[in-house]
Each structure stands twice: as structure tokens, then as C-alpha cells.
Design a binder for these strands. Structure first.
Lengths: 198, 198
DNA sequence: AATTTTACCGACCAACTGGTCGGTGGGTTT
DNA sequence: AAACCCACCGACCAGTTGGTCGGTAAAATT
């Protein structure tokens, strides 16, 4: 595989595991048995390197995991439920979950690096916009109560998702995932269209 | 004020603002015009310093802001609503919100420093236990539906709280707080005891 | 008054940081 | 075959890191 790609993949892994500021370029190079020269041949700086990682890896995966799965015309709430279910399942198995990766980096860069924050915020914005669309589609298609605030639901969903991921990291991920999903369904019940039970 | 306290207060401020690994002891000392000698006279190491900050500042504030306010015998859901409302309001004004401080540090130390993680997890555990108690009290007192899973509600509440804080940090905190609280009330409606509307 | 303890100073250290730069060897152009 | 480009090497640099240590002046203890 191309050296540039290998650097980015390993870079993201280590940045995620140890944090951006706590991972040195040397750490990444040691992992791949490459030299400083190789790194600075491909990237201008550590910051430029990370921005390319965001654009090449994080954005793409966010789309694949959290945006495309909710684009269909089925019941939005079902789509979102399944989407979260799958995303959290990869999280249980300690794989990279890009929604969380994003939240993590936002914590790390907040107030420290406005340039990088802008890139991260943009992704969050895209997620938000797509969630709002999905919810409005759900209203239009008769699945969601027309009186609910789509923006509010989106904010609530994103918040709880970012939060449960922080929380899963610390203890009993599988049990917490299960409990979280149950309560999410409970919440969804409260915003769906009430069909009188015959 | 005693030098030791001033070090801890300034330390927490800077650790919170810039991250633990991205804040040097020299940064803290410069802020207070103190020397290395002063620091190592009072603390064994940077890690020891941070653990004392957790125990002296973070634990106390967590109790004051997120635990004691939900201990009363009124309607648990009201208590929790008010508690979150207040905590998020301090967050809007960019003051230290210790629930979030906790979540932030958990992200930062996860997988890097088990010793510190243990201390942070303990606080989260205390919060969880107290939330579960409050919810069970709510069931007992006839405010909350007896069929709901208390543990699940607690996990959901903590998640969404940690999440909204990450999310508020990035954009339009006040609007997001408002939207979040609306949806929280919506969720609470779905778990409270259903009194037939006459 | 003599001694010990406390609180603090600041020069110093080895390890590490992001980044620079002169090189080198293989492949492609001319 | 000469000239050039590309991908990479690794010694080196200045600045920063957490941490050490010998010293000192004031306060507390004897």
C-alpha cells in the first residue's frame, strides 16, 4: 500500500488511542519503520497531516456509518434505531466508531486549535442536517408526530449518542449499549404518531 | 490563600482548558509566578497533583451540582430536570461544569492512565448510583412508571448529559440547551405515571 | 539562643518534541 | 548517457517536558 495511506491509517489509530497531542510523529514512524524524511515528504506539518486524515478517513466513515444508513424512505425511527444499533455494536468490539472518534477529537481540540475545530464541526453539522432531514421525512411519511421539533430531536439524538460512547468506554459496554437502546426506543415511542390501539 | 490550593485551582483551570497532557507544570507555575521548587514541595508528581485535584475539587463540585440537588423527596423527574437545567446554565456561561469536566477527562485518560481512570470512574459510579436511587424513589412515590428500568434511565440520562455538553461546546450553546431540555421533558413524559386525563 | 522544619527558589538534567536539510539510490525523460 | 524527479533516509536543531537538587530565609520548636 502507498506510504501516504499507511501513515494516515496508523496516524488515526494512534491519535485516537493516545490523543493528538500525546502522539508524536516519531511514534507513528516507529510503528511503520519509516523516517522523518518520509513523513515530511508527504505532509507539510503535523496539523496538515491530521486535516488530511479527517478528510480522507473520518468524513468517509461518518458517511458510511451514520449518514447513508438513514437516507432511505422507510420509517425514519427504525432506520435511526438500526443505524445506532450497528454503530454501537462496532463500539462494543473496540473497533473504531467514527461518530465517537469525532466527539473525542472535538473534546481534545476545543479551544486549542480553531483550524482543526472548523473541520470537525463541519462533519457534525453534516450529521445534524441529515438527521433533521430524516426526521422531517418521518413526519411527512406519517411515522413521526408532526408537532415535534425536528432540530430538537436531532440535537437530543446526537447528544445521547456522543454521551453513551464516552460512557461505554469506561465500563460494561455491552450492558450499557443494551440499556441505552431500550431507552432510545422508549423515547422514540413518545414522538411517533399515535395510532389508537384499535 | 494557601499556595497548595492556588496551585490546584489554577491547575484544574488549565488542565480543563488545554488538556492534561497539553498543559505543562511550567504553564501553571508561570500563571502563579511560582517556581518548580514550590510545586514539588507540595506534590510528588504531575499525576499525584492531578489525583489531588480530582479528590479536592472535582468530587466536591460533582456532589454539589449533580448529586445533592436530586436527593430530596419531591418528584424525582422535576428534581433531575431542575438540576440539569442549572448545570447546563452554568455551562452556557462558560463556567466550569463539573459533570462535563469529568466526561472530558475520561475521554482524555481513557486507555492512557488506568490509575487516574479509576478515580474518574469512581465519581461516575457515584453519580450513577444516586441517579438510580432518585428514580427508584420516584417510582415508590408514585411519580414514575413502575415498569421502567431504573438503571437504563440513569444510563440514558448520564449519556445525554455528557453528550449535550460536548455538543454545546462546539456551537450555539444556549439554543442547544433549550432544545435538549425540551426533548428531555418529552422523554420524561414517556416514563412518568400515566394519570388518565379525566 | 540554637536547632529544626517549612515553604519556596531557580539552575540544571536527560528525554523528547516538531521540524529542517543535505544526502542517496532507483526510475523516467531527454 | 546525462539530467532530472521521486520517495525516502537519518543526523541534527532549538525548544519544551517532567523531574532533581542544593540552597535560603522565615517560622516554629526546643
Amino acid at each position: 500500500m502507498a506510504t501516504m495511506q499507511r501513515l494516515q491509517i496508523t496516524g488515526l489509530e494512534l491519535f485516537y488511542k493516545n490523543g493528538y497531542y500525546n502522539t508524536s510523529i516519531d511514534d507513528i514512524l516507529k510503528e511503520l519503520s519509516l523516517s522523518k524524511g518520509a513523513f515530511y515528504h508527504h505532509f507539510d506539518s503535523k496539523e496538515d497531516f491530521f486535516i488530511q486524515i479527517i478528510q480522507n478517513l473520518i468524513v468517509r466513515k461518518m458517511y458510511a456509518m451514520l449518514i447513508e444508513p438513514i437516507e432511505g424512505h422507510e420509517n425514519s425511527l427504525d432506520l435511526i434505531t438500526n443505524c445506532f444499533e450497528n454503530a454501537l455494536e462496532t463500539a462494543v468490539h473496540n473497533e473504531l466508531d467514527f461518530g465517537f472518534v469525532l466527539g473525542n477529537f472535538i473534546s481534545e481540540f476545543n479551544g486549542k486549535n480553531p483550524e482543526i475545530m472548523k473541520h470537525l464541526s463541519d462533519i457534525l453539522k453534516i450529521w445534524e442536517v441529515n438527521l433533521v432531514s430524516a426526521i422531517q421525512r418521518g413526519k411527512f411519511n406519517g411515522y413521526i408526530d408532526r408537532h415535534v421539533d425536528s432540530e430538537g430531536v436531532a440535537v437530543f439524538l446526537m447528544s445521547s449518542y456522543l454521551g453513551i460512547r464516552t460512557f461505554m468506554v469506561e465500563n460494561a459496554p455491552s450492558a450499557r449499549k443494551y440499556r441505552f437502546m431500550s431507552q432510545l426506543r422508549q423515547y422514540f415511542k413518545s414522538i411517533q404518531v399515535k395510532t389508537p390501539t384499535v
